[in-house]
Amino acid sequence: MFDLQFLADAFPVILESLGTTLWVTIASCALAVVLGFMLEILRRSSRQFGFVFRFVTDFIRSTPILVQIYFLYFVLPQFGVTLPALVIGVFSLGLYYSAYLAEVFKAGIDAVPRGQTEAAQSLGLRWTDQVVRVIMPQMLRHIAAPMGNYFVSLLKATPYLAVIAVPEMLGAALELGSDTFRYAEPMVATEIIFLVLAIGIAQLVRVLEIRMMRSAKR
C-alpha cells in the first residue's frame, strides 16, 4: 500500500539533489546556447559546407538523447577520453539541445529584416558590431520564448543522466528506492517536484513573453 508518510519523508532526501539538477540544467543550457549559435552562424556563412552543419543538427535531432548519452559515456573511454559522468552529462545535454537552439537562432535571425543588416553595413559597422548591436537585440524578442521553453525541456531531460550515475534528483530517488525496496513513493515525490518546477518555470516564461510583446519597439 502507498505510504504517505514515506512519500513526505522522501521529499527532503530527493531535494538534496535539486542543486545538482539545477546547475546541470544551467550549465547545459549555456553550452547549448553557445554551440547552437555557433552551429547556425557557421551554417549560414559557409556556402560550400553549410549542408554539413545542417546534417550535424539533423543527426543530433534524429537520434534519442539517451542513446547519445550512452554513446558518449561508454565509447569515449575506448578512445582514451575519460571524463567524469557529470561532465559527459552536461556535454551530451548541451550538444543535443544545441541542435534545437540552432533552429531557434535561425528563425530569430531570419525574423530580423534584411534592411537592418544593410543599414548597419552602410554605416561602416564591422561584422561583430552588426551582429551584437543591431541583429541580436532585435532577435531577442523572437527567441526569448522558444529558448525559455527549451530551458524547461532541458530541465526535464536531466533525469536521463541518472543512467550514468549523475547525482541528480532521479538518481537520488532511485537510490532511495533501492535502499528501501519501495520505489513508488520516491518516484511520485520526484514527479511532483518536477511538475512544480516545469510548470512554474513555464509560467515565468509566459509572463516574460507577454512583457516582451508589450514593450516591443516597432
Binding site: M1, K156, L170, G177, Y183, M187, V188, T190, F194, L195
Partner: peptide, 23 residues
C-alpha cells in the same frame, strides 16, 4: 493536459510502473 505534457517522461514512466501495482 499539462500533467502529461510537463512531466519528464522517464520519471512518469517509473511512477506508473511502480505505482500501478499498488492499486
Amino acid at each position: 493536459i499539462e500533467f502529461w505534457r510537463s512531466s519528464p517522461i522517464i520519471v512518469l514512466l517509473f511512477v506508473f510502473y511502480y505505482s500501478l501495482p499498488m492499486i
